[in-house]
């Protein structure tokens, strides 16, 4: 035997199960009076800088049925491309922006919604700019380890073409699974973004 590296192993993941909302969005699941507000329910305040947008989507299984028990989380930079995180070393992010959101799918339609702002660009490790994007994390019954993906914006064609991650996807036909088309609903830019867990239209998921 060689010497031990003496590292611990990460705790193994397990599915979030069908009742993830009890722990992560108890008010949504009907357990009121314990927390004032569900975590990640509100990303903005009136003082938040940036362009207001809405992101709406559903998560589909391999049969084409929308998941009604998924939980989607978002992590993103502020309008200037700074993360509201102690690990952010480039400057002070907008103090009126959480950067983190959490949305349970509607129990009837499965639709998740984020009211947020469009993020600014964030540098890649070699200094090139990444196109504006949201990082999404999806858990649900039947998903053993949370799935990481990204949402890019359909109206950022030029930035998307130069994006160091989008541009190196080998199967070019799959890149559009990460790009949400823009529409205008209720006078606000709205990005409709459906996620396909499995099959012909399968969304790209990352090993990060």
């Amino acid at each position: 035997m060689v010497q031990s590296l003496d590292r611990l192993k990460e705790s193994a993941s397990q599915t979030a199960g069908p009742y993830v909302h009890i722990g992560c969005t108890p008010n949504f699941s009907g357990i009121t009076g314990v927390y004032e507000e569900d975590l990640g329910n509100r990303m903005l305040s009136p003082e938040t800088k940036g362009e207001r947008i809405r992101v709406i989507g559903r998560v589909f299984d391999g049969v084409g049925t929308p998941l009604k028990d998924a939980l989607v989380e978002v992590w993103q930079a502020d309008a200037a491309g700074l993360y509201p995180s102690p690990q952010e070393t480039r400057g002070q992010a907008d103090p009126h922006f959480s950067g983190f959101g959490r949305s349970p799918g509607d129990m009837e339609t499965g639709e998740f919604v984020f009211d947020t702002i469009k993020p600014g660009p964030v540098p890649f490790k070699d200094g090139r700019l990444q196109a504006p994007h949201l990082t999404l994390w999806i858990v649900a019954r039947g998903i053993n380890l949370g799935l990481h993906t990204r949402l890019y914006f359909g109206d950022e064609t030029e930035a998307n073409e130069a994006d160091p991650i989008l541009s190196r996807i080998e199967h070019r036909s799959r890149a559009p699974t990460l790009i949400a088309p823009m529409t205008t609903e209720d006078g606000r830019p709205t990005y409709r973004h459906d996620i396909y867990l499995q099959g012909d239209r399968e969304t790209i998921f990352f090993d990060i």
């Binding site: 299984d61 964030v122 994007h133 019954r141 053993n144 990352f206 090993d207 990060i208």
Partner: peptide, 16 residues
């Protein structure tokens, strides 16, 4: 029916 069939794409950690 809830497992991706295609390989995950490896992504070096960025600030995100």
């Amino acid at each position: 029916t809830r497992s991706p069939q295609k390989a995950l794409i490896a992504l070096d950690n960025t600030l995100s």
